[in-house]
Write a protein that binds this DNA or RNA. Structure first.
Lengths: 189, 189
DNA sequence: GCAAATTAATGATTTATTCAAG
DNA sequence: CTTGAATAAATCATTAATTTGC
């Protein structure tokens, strides 16, 4: 690695200890093996883009094994999905790996109201599907625990919270940041 | 899943409009001129990637002019930033690219592998500078409003509110909505 | 054996594209 | 067409692996 290329641009707070499961440090999330296993199993089962609700539940579940936040789950799936795709693409670079999302989350029983659904794809490659067998997903102990927690799932009606800014912008920590113009139009901010 | 996999559905929400709301359609956000003006002013002033906090404040402010949600603000900035850049890029380079050259009739609709130029630091334009540290911006009334609303609500660490769920797929609108994609096939989900 | 120095993984962010409502 | 919404690809940054010199 060439030395002297610190690249400091977007420094962020750093931590000395990984969050893991015991440390209280808030570096980046460091999943435990159990957490990874569960996530991987879900992925293998076909889950690729969990909904907000699912993320929440998964997160709650995983919290039993260590510190974790919803966003971690979200990012994990994003990254895992992308990297699996990337990996696969690498292997068969000649073949168009267009493979749809195959997200099992899409409700199967509900017929979409009809918006001209353009032809999907040529359905020729089904490389990595296990889809339908999802319901057989094991989840031993996890299941038990959840049984008690799943009862009340009524959302008030204030479930709004979507988006939540994945981009908190706190990327800047020690940058110089000369002062903004402070335009008067921004008086309300 | 077969060929016609519906997948996540990009835009949904529709038809649930018959509820008892005050006729608040839940289509997509339709900014009022005042809202757009304010957002534009902020953008012109240099704001490009507002933090969670800022988004919250801006949203609150804009709500005075019409219905709006935080995520709308978030998306607005994302899109505006991207499109300004795109516009600028178009002008500077008459691009020989022409992605649509070779017949892509066979390609239904999936993201293209990516065709894009690094263009990471080209920054030949100095005008487009992003003001950082919006924290320094004066907060007037919005601040006051917020003060009352959020004092005890959530002030844990707003530090990492990241992630997003901006991909929650179903933008609840606050109404019942029901039917989160929720794939119940996963035992504990 | 064991840290500093590298490298490989992967968590977290940003940018480019795509889709569809109005 | 314009642009709000959403997602994939690319990138950045930090931590775990590992290699290396001692």
């Amino acid at each position: 690695m060439s030395p002297g290329v610190p690249i400091k641009a977007r420094g962020l707070v750093h931590s000395i200890n990984g969050g893991g499961g015991t440390g209280t440090k808030c570096g980046r999330w460091n999943p435990t093996v159990e957490q990874v296993k569960l996530l991987t199993d879900l992925f293998k089962a076909g889950l690729r883009t969990p909904s907000t609700d699912q993320i929440q539940k998964i997160s709650t579940e995983l919290s039993l094994y260590g510190k974790i936040e919803s966003k971690n789950v979200f990012y994990w799936f994003q990254n895992h999905k992308a990297r699996e795709r990337q990996k696969r693409r690498k292997i068969s670079s000649v073949d168009f790996d267009h493979r749809q999302d195959t997200d099992l989350s899409a409700s199967p029983r509900r017929y979409r109201p009809r918006l001209h659904q353009p032809q999907r794809k040529v359905c020729d490659e089904e490389e990595e599907k296990e889809i339908e067998t999802l319901q057989l997903f094991p989840l031993s102990k996890v299941e038990r625990v959840r049984a008690n927690l799943t009862s009340a799932s009524h959302n008030e009606y204030t479930r709004e919270q979507a988006y939540t800014t994945a981009f908190s912008t706190y990327s800047t920590c020690g940058a110089e940041m000369e002062h903004p113009p402070l335009d008067l139009r921004l008086s309300f901010l």
